[in-house]
Design a protein around this nucleic acid. Structure first.
Lengths: 157, 157
DNA sequence: CATATTTAGTTAGCTGGCTGATCTTTTAAT
DNA sequence: ATTAAAAGATCAGCCAGCTAACTAAATATG
């Protein structure tokens, strides 16, 4: 009775990878934000810090590129991080346009907390994945990321 | 010279599924928003419309549950959809608290546009996936969604 | 019947993304 | 040297999410 022909179109829609991805995406972001909130950070800040832990003193434009984010987004994030004293900014000597972003001591100190929280995220929510899935997923996700960051404008006119 | 022992920790971080998922998430959301913008919609509105095409006249709380969204989020989305005349709201007769959301003619009419755009999304960005991946991904994504929507508070005190 | 609790929605205010416009500084071109 | 173009950063304003706090209606409870 409920399997009328009317439903077919919608079912297709909801079975697309794009749809499923959207649902995962939304749910995941909320969880991530909540988890990082436990250590006083916002999700976006974590990724920015990660890049700085990797290489301190980057310019904003470098961060934007590495994180695949727009410049204003990075600008606002840094503002937030400066306010809670995790990073400092400094005008570049050679180039008056650039601002370099440096970790403060507190910024460095957050690393263990973030790692711990990250580990929890990974273990708490992904416990149900079997070994095969754990192997495949990284590849698939990487593939997806490349698809969405790389071929943004690849559509017919 | 650059491959010091210092880097090891960070590399682990960036190989976690959580990290990769975050990157996909951000990239995908931007693409999705851009694509739906081509037909005058925002990403969130599309999902709400989808539910209404499935079953018209839902209450906001129903929509929130089905979409796994918070009530204020749905409230704002509906506001936007009302403004562009895709849905109308109507106070429930039996229950003065509820508002039911109904598609307008224009709301119904968007369906083809959305489907078309959705198809493009699916074909343009996921062309590189092979058949195996196309089979596995839906399962994996569904699994992830359940993990992130279901076990939100499953952590030690 | 009166009061307390639950439920549905809204408002306010936050971060995370974006685009578009603006400003300053550099660099390129004439 | 002057002007034009490019690059780095910011500001304003938008939507998608959220939480917290609130109103109003419905239901429980006494």
């Amino acid at each position: 009775m409920k399997l009328g022909a009317v439903m077919e179109e919608e079912i297709i829609f909801q079975k697309t990878i794009s749809y499923l991805l959207a649902r995962v995406t939304t749910a995941y972001k909320t969880v991530l934000e909540r988890h990082m909130g436990l250590i006083g950070l916002h999700a976006g800040q974590v990724f920015l810090l990660l890049e700085l832990w990797h290489e301190d003193g980057l310019r904003q434009v470098d961060l934007a590129r590495r994180l695949s984010l727009a410049a204003p987004t990075v600008s606002k994030m840094i503002k937030g991080l400066v306010e809670i004293n995790l990073v400092e900014i400094e005008r570049e000597d050679g180039d008056g346009r650039s601002t370099r972003v440096y970790l403060t001591d507190q910024g460095h100190a957050m690393r263990d907390d973030v790692n711990a929280q990250w580990l929890e995220l990974e273990t708490n929510y992904l416990a149900d994945l079997n070994e095969t899935e754990r192997l495949i997923l990284p590849e698939l996700l990487t593939k997806l990321r490349k698809a969405y960051t790389g071929a943004v404008d690849a559509e017919e006119d």
